[in-house]
């Protein structure tokens, strides 16, 4: 593998991206598409389920155990496990990613709701608020920081695992990284890596800004 200087390498990377704009953009789009779909579905399933588990202890016991176990399965294993059944491509990747991201969101939601001080809830009931009012005006605002931090962690994780999902034909920026590694081509490798790293950092940063706004709103 040739080892050009760092600056020439970076220039080469930019050149590469420039000459392969169409493919690059398509990869970014595919990557973001997977990210957004997986996040939305995971939230749609995970948040209500997490909230429900917090309210019903019987449900929560086994739900937590199952999802904690799922969380421990290596992401690569999850990506590959559906191949015998679903083959390769977008669909198995999406399913695997959802199974990977769901536990974090669900568990964070569960913890968010269950860590609320009993005394606060008692107080709210004593004040005469209905169950619905308590849920939306008291519990959810208090659970939100934890739910949000779960979203933030999950998002970064989804983007990272989506990169690996290129191995099972899902497309995305991971393809460039893989091609680069296989062919020992630093330029292609960096084109993929730096871009996906940048995306992950931007998403993380956006979430951290939102978190700060959320906390400010909470204290106020």
């Amino acid at each position: 593998m040739s080892k050009p200087g760092l600056d020439t390498l970076l220039l080469g990377t930019l050149e590469y991206i420039d000459t392969h704009q169409a493919a690059f953009l398509a990869a970014i789009q595919r990557h973001l598409l997977l990210f957004v779909i997986v996040l939305l579905i995971s939230v749609a399933i995970g948040v209500p389920l997490g909230m429900a588990s917090a309210k019903r202890p019987i449900f929560s016991a086994w739900a937590l155990n199952i999802f904690s176990a799922l969380k421990m399965i290596p992401s690569l294993a999850l990506l590959m496990v559906f191949i015998p059944i679903l083959g390769v491509g977008f669909l198995p990747a999406m399913i695997a990613l959802i199974v990977h991201a769901l536990p974090t969101i669900l568990i964070n939601t569960y913890t968010g709701y269950s860590q609320i001080d009993e005394a606060i809830l008692e107080n709210a009931t004593a004040m005469g608020l209905t169950e619905r009012e308590i849920l939306w005006r008291v519990e959810t605002p208090l659970a939100l920081p934890l739910i949000f931090s779960g979203l933030r962690t999950s998002s970064v994780d989804i983007i990272a695992t989506t990169t690996v999902a290129a191995y099972i034909g899902a497309g995305g920026l991971g393809e460039f990284v893989i091609v680069g590694i296989t062919n020992m081509n630093s330029v292609i490798m960096l084109a993929g890596s730096l871009t996906v790293a940048a995306i992950a950092l931007i998403v993380d940063f956006i979430f951290s800004l939102l978190q700060r706004r959320l906390i400010r709103y909470q204290i106020a």
């Binding site: 990272a160 990284v177 993929g192 890596s193 730096l194 790293a197």
Partner: peptide, 11 residues
């Protein structure tokens, strides 16, 4: 930590 692992390996 936010950098995707495959990207980190590659870099």
């Amino acid at each position: 930590y936010a950098v995707p692992s495959l990207a980190m390996f590659a870099i």
